[in-house]
């Protein structure tokens, strides 16, 4: 028994050799992990040409049919507008956002007569397909959210285009 004791540390050392990082870095690929499996080195595979994604018809339906306007829809629209549009269009839609101040071509104000008269579907269309120097936002803004943003733009427009007579208690507001 005593003679075998020096073997123990040796066995322990051999056991250590069994340790590796294969649990840490498993063969499965996590999102954005570099991989040699494809020549471009990324696991994010685009869709092959002609593929219709699951939910594509639901997305199309959501695009053609405006949802009912509610307080919640407007709140969501405001959040998305502030994150995705305000950097260029400004928080009030004047077209003077911070990125424009740094040299981006200025977009038109939402408070112009032309954009006030434009149908809501025009805004949804601009978000979906882009317009001139403005890129499409279809990769970032879901179809339902495009209507929410449009509803909020309408609210912005209304805020500048309301006659005093339409707000009967405006006179008392200052008292």
């Amino acid at each position: 028994m005593r003679r075998r004791a020096p073997l123990l540390p040796l066995i322990a050392l051999l056991a250590l050799a069994g340790c590796d990082q294969s649990m840490q870095d498993q063969p499965s690929i996590k999102p954005y992990e570099a991989t040699a499996m494809w020549p471009d080195g990324t696991p994010e595979r685009g869709l092959p040409d002609g593929v219709v994604t699951r939910g594509a018809s639901a997305a199309l339906a959501a695009l053609s049919e405006p949802p009912p306007v509610s307080e919640a829809l407007l709140a969501r629209g405001r959040r998305d507008f502030d994150d995705f549009c305000a950097p260029c269009h400004g928080y009030a839609g004047d077209g003077d956002g911070i990125v424009v101040q740094r040299g981006f071509p200025p977009p038109p104000s939402y408070h112009s007569d032309r954009l006030r008269a434009a149908p809501a579907s025009h805004f949804v269309d601009v978000i979906t397909n882009g317009y001139g120097a403005m890129y499409a936002y279809s990769d970032r803004v879901a179809p339902e959210d495009r209507w929410a943003i449009t509803a909020y733009i309408r609210a912005l427009q209304t805020s500048r285009d309301t006659a005093l007579a339409a707000v009967p208690d405006a006179a008392e507001a200052l008292q």
Binding site: K30, P31, Y32, D82, D83, F84, P87, I98, V99, R140
Partner: peptide
């Protein structure tokens, strides 16, 4: 400085396990 919201670039952070990276 520019105040661009996180979701502009990390688009799936509220919807999925991965926050998403900007293309």
């Amino acid at each position: 400085e520019l105040g661009i919201g996180c979701r502009m670039c990390h688009n799936s952070v509220e919807k999925a396990a991965s926050a998403g990276m900007p293309s």
